[in-house]
Amino acid sequence: MKVKIFLASLLLSFTAYAFAQDAKAPTASQDAGYKTSFKRNKAGDNWFIHLGVGAQTIFGDHDMDGELMNRMTVAPTLSVGKWFSPYWGVRLKGQGGSLHGVENHGNFMQHDRYYNVHMDAMWDLTNYWGKYNENKFFSFVPYLGLGFAHRMQNDQTIPSDLDLPYNYGRYSNVISMNTGLMFGFRLSKRVNLDLDLAGALVPDYFDRITQNAEYEGITAATLGFTFKLGKTNFEVVEPMDYNLINDLNGKINGLRSENDALSKRPVSCPECPKVAPSTTSAINYVPNVVFFRLNSAKIDANQQISVYNTAQFMKNTGEKIKVVGYADKKTGSGGYNLKISEQRAKAVAKELSAKYNIPSEKIVVEWKGSDEQPYPENNWNRVVIMTAQ
């Protein structure tokens, strides 16, 4: 009896391990991303590099006095980042070039060379509020970050009639506040086309001219390609089937109670009458079952013992076996459940033939979907039952 308890405990431990260590977890979630648990990827996975180019302009005190098209300049961008989950990540982005600002009510245009390097936190709303799928075509990613902006020394000739600060041409260093929206379009497993609408706030003295406003804004719209490095997807963590675990715990407790009762029996028993041996032979076979996870037709490692025992029975007796697949009725449509019960039954039959060399003509395969429920517990009906013919 102690051996039985040990084996049952071992089976329970292995069941928990098998559910936690599934060889191939799904890469699409059934629920919204924020309701789903994902496996943590390696440090070298989910990195990306983005190269883009577009247009930018600065909005200062008198910039609205100039024509917008005359103030727009080329904006090259370079980003390197990493996604830590399907919906949040960080990146280091650099943007620069020349800024054309207008002063003196449109009579003077500045030509300032600059760069702005900032660290952003990114939030993929399509994967957070929606279901995660690595093949999703569109993504919407707001971001927010802080950075360092540097205006280079300006040697531009200033007209004599302009009243500009004495240190106008000197460089300046400021802290930048950055935000924006990214619209991503999946081209392939490793390449995205991204539209980045970016904005940065810098102190008014960034251009060495201070007037009424506290801040100046730099806006840009760029289009570029994102190249994904390392592993590109995230795997969904499938929860353990706690109903199955509780059922095994109940069996263990029952065996313990039985063992306690047997330990209290008398050391010696009165002589019992001899029982004549039976002259009839019968095949003693209790139906074997293989339980499956939700939406799965894969035989878990902890269920292989049932397939093995059935194969040994067939080899020892030469009997035929009926393999019947089922699905629980509380999940899925009738058509879907019929299909997955068929897949489950055929998976068990294939295992008997391929792994244990059981002739296919000795296996009768049937499937019932969710029209028949062999067990009162809903989760138990994700099952294949094997019975002797």
Score class of each variant (00 low, 15 high):
F14I: 07
D22M: 10
A28W: 01
S29F: 00
Q30D: 06
G33V: 01
K39V: 04
R40H: 13
F48N: 02
L51Q: 04
Q56H: 03
I58Y: 00
F59L: 12
D61F: 08
D61R: 10
D63W: 00
D63E: 06
G66I: 05
L68I: 07
M72C: 13
P76E: 02
K82E: 05
W83T: 03
F84V: 11
F84I: 10
S85H: 04
V90N: 02
E103C: 06
M109C: 08
H118G: 12
A121N: 10
A121M: 14
W123Q: 05
L125A: 11
N127H: 12
Y128K: 09
E134T: 08
N135D: 15
S139N: 10
P142R: 05
A149R: 01
A149W: 00
Y168A: 06
Y171L: 04
N173I: 06
V174G: 00
I175K: 10
S176H: 05
S176P: 02
M177F: 15
G184I: 00
F185L: 15
S188Y: 11
V191W: 14
N192H: 13
D196C: 10
D207S: 06
I209K: 13
T210Y: 04
Q211W: 11
N212K: 12
N212H: 13
E214R: 14
Y215S: 04
A221G: 13
A221W: 00
G224C: 07
V237A: 06
P239F: 08
M240E: 12
M240F: 07
Y242F: 10
K251L: 05
D260V: 12
C269W: 14
C269M: 15
P273C: 03
P273V: 04
S278M: 09
S281G: 07
A282D: 11
I283H: 08
P287I: 02
F291I: 01
D300C: 02
S306W: 04
Y308W: 13
A311N: 06
Q312I: 07
K320A: 11
V323L: 03
V324D: 03
A327G: 07
K330G: 14
K330V: 09
G334W: 04
G334T: 13
N337D: 12
E342V: 03
R344G: 00
K346S: 08
S360K: 15
I363V: 15
V364L: 11
V364H: 03
E366N: 06
S370H: 01
S370M: 06
E372K: 11
E372A: 09
N378G: 09
W380N: 14
N381I: 05
T387S: 11
T387P: 00
Q389P: 02
